[in-house]
C-alpha cells in the first residue's frame, strides 16, 4: 500500500454548492415538515365526544375539578383534552416493517462507513505524504 496517491477531490462550483444547500432545505421540508402539515405524522389519537359534559361525566373527582377550574377550564373546555386518548392498537407487520427500516439503515451505514474508513486509513497510514 506504500506510495498510495492521495485522493484529490474535485472543486465544487458555487452553483453546485447552492444547489446542495437548497437540496438539504427541500429534504427537511418534504420529509419532516410536509407530513406534519398534511397531518400525516404524530399524535395517533382517538377523540371521544361527551355531549353536555359535567366534571362527573368526564370522570373527574372534586379535587380534579377544582384544579381544572383554577387553571381556567370549564367542563366544556376540558372535554376535548380529557376525551383525547392515544390509540395504541397496532399490527405486527407495521412494527416489523419499521424495525426493518431502522435495522437496514444501521447495517448499511456501518458497512458503507467501513468501506470508506478503510480508504481513509489506507491513505492516512500508507499514503504518500503531501508536500
Amino acid at each position: 500500500m506504500a506510495g498510495r496517491t492521495p485522493y484529490e477531490p474535485p472543486v465544487q462550483s458555487v452553483v453546485g454548492q447552492i444547489v446542495d444547500a437548497v437540496l438539504m432545505l427541500v429534504l427537511v421540508f418534504i420529509t419532516l415538515y410536509l407530513p406534519l402539515l398534511l397531518k400525516l405524522a404524530g399524535g395517533g389519537t382517538t377523540a371521544t365526544a361527551t355531549p353536555n359534559p359535567t366534571w362527573e361525566s368526564l370522570g373527574q373527582n372534586p379535587t380534579m375539578a377544582g384544579q381544572w377550574e383554577k387553571l381556567g377550564f370549564t367542563p366544556e373546555k376540558a372535554a376535548g383534552i380529557i376525551g383525547t386518548r392515544f390509540d395504541y392498537a397496532f399490527n405486527w407487520s407495521l412494527v416489523a416493517l419499521t424495525a426493518a427500516i431502522i435495522v437496514g439503515y444501521f447495517i448499511f451505514m456501518f458497512r458503507y462507513s467501513d468501506r470508506e474508513y478503510r480508504e481513509v486509513i489506507a491513505e492516512h497510514f500508507d499514503g504518500t505524504p503531501k508536500a
Binding site: L27, T31, L32, P35, G42, G44, T45, F86, F90, Y105
Partner: peptide
C-alpha cells in the same frame, strides 16, 4: 412507535 409511528418513519426517511 406507539402514537408517533409515522413521525419515526418520516425521520428515518430523512
Amino acid at each position: 412507535f406507539l402514537g408517533y409511528g409515522t413521525q419515526l418513519v418520516a425521520m428515518m426517511t430523512f
